[in-house]
Amino acid sequence: MVRYVLLIIATGVLAGCSLLAPDPPSDQGNICEIFREQPEWYDYARASEERWGTPIATQMAFVYRESSFRSHVRPPRPWLLGIIPWFRSSSAYGYAQAQDPVWGEYEEDAGGLFARRTHMKHATDFIGWYNRRSHERQGIALSNPEHLYLAYHQGPTGYERGSYRSKPGIQRIARQVEQRAWRYDAQLKQCESEFRCRHFWQFWPFCSE
């Protein structure tokens, strides 16, 4: 009985968090419009870039590919015999679709115990952290969205083995991520001044265009 009550409470809390999460941006093809709807996302991505080095546009291209900016998305749950809910294909969850094992590594190494996969601040920081690790371990340039995504999707061991070379679908997706990152970057150059130094406490010389 106690376990049942706790399950109900936990379900209610999770549902409430989901309701409080922002809706996905209406125009996901334009990073300027994304940040106009959610300007704090720019702050999070910029902080991640400053901490880890992955460009803002690349982070947003990853989030688009992984979750289409949906905060609580998971892989679909199959149904056994059409009536019994079965195990999901992976533990991927949240904006960055981070799986349980690597998210645990991130929490221990950089994110802290209160990091949440459903919060854009932590999702962008996770992407930056992961890409920094790919840069340091696999030598992938932080200016190379295609191979950063291949390492992100295949994991360090899979990337080092070159497992993606026999997976044309994954290669195609990685190229799409790269194209979106370049497109977002070009768009951001036209509007970034709207988001930098917009807070009243941000002023020269502590904040510069």
Rank of each mutant, 00 (worst) to 15 (best):
I8P: 03
I9T: 11
G12V: 11
G12I: 13
L20H: 04
L20I: 04
P22W: 07
D23N: 12
S26Q: 15
D27Q: 13
D27T: 09
Q28P: 10
C32L: 10
E33H: 14
I34F: 09
F35V: 04
R36S: 14
Q38N: 15
E40D: 15
A45V: 06
S48G: 12
E50R: 14
E50N: 13
R51K: 15
G53A: 09
R65A: 14
R65E: 15
E66I: 08
S67K: 08
S68L: 13
F69N: 07
F69Y: 15
H72M: 11
V73K: 12
R74I: 12
P75W: 10
P78E: 09
P78W: 12
L80V: 14
I83D: 09
I83T: 15
P85G: 12
R88E: 12
A92Q: 07
Y93R: 05
Y95Q: 05
A96Q: 04
A96D: 06
Q97K: 08
Q97E: 08
Q99Y: 01
D100P: 00
V102H: 03
V102K: 02
E108C: 00
D109G: 01
F114C: 01
R116K: 12
T118C: 05
T118A: 10
H119P: 00
M120E: 03
T124K: 01
G128L: 05
G128A: 09
W129N: 00
S134Y: 02
R137P: 00
Q138A: 14
G139C: 02
S143E: 13
N144H: 09
P145T: 03
H147F: 01
Y149G: 05
Y149S: 06
Y149M: 07
Y149K: 06
Q154D: 11
G155N: 00
T157G: 10
Y159T: 01
R161G: 02
G162S: 07
Y164F: 15
Q171A: 09
I173C: 05
A174I: 03
A174Y: 02
A181F: 06
Y184F: 15
A186T: 11
Q187I: 06
L188G: 04
Q190D: 12
C191D: 05
S193F: 08
R196F: 02
F200L: 13
F200K: 11
F203D: 05
F203Q: 10
W204F: 13
F206A: 08
F206T: 02
S208Y: 09
S208Q: 13
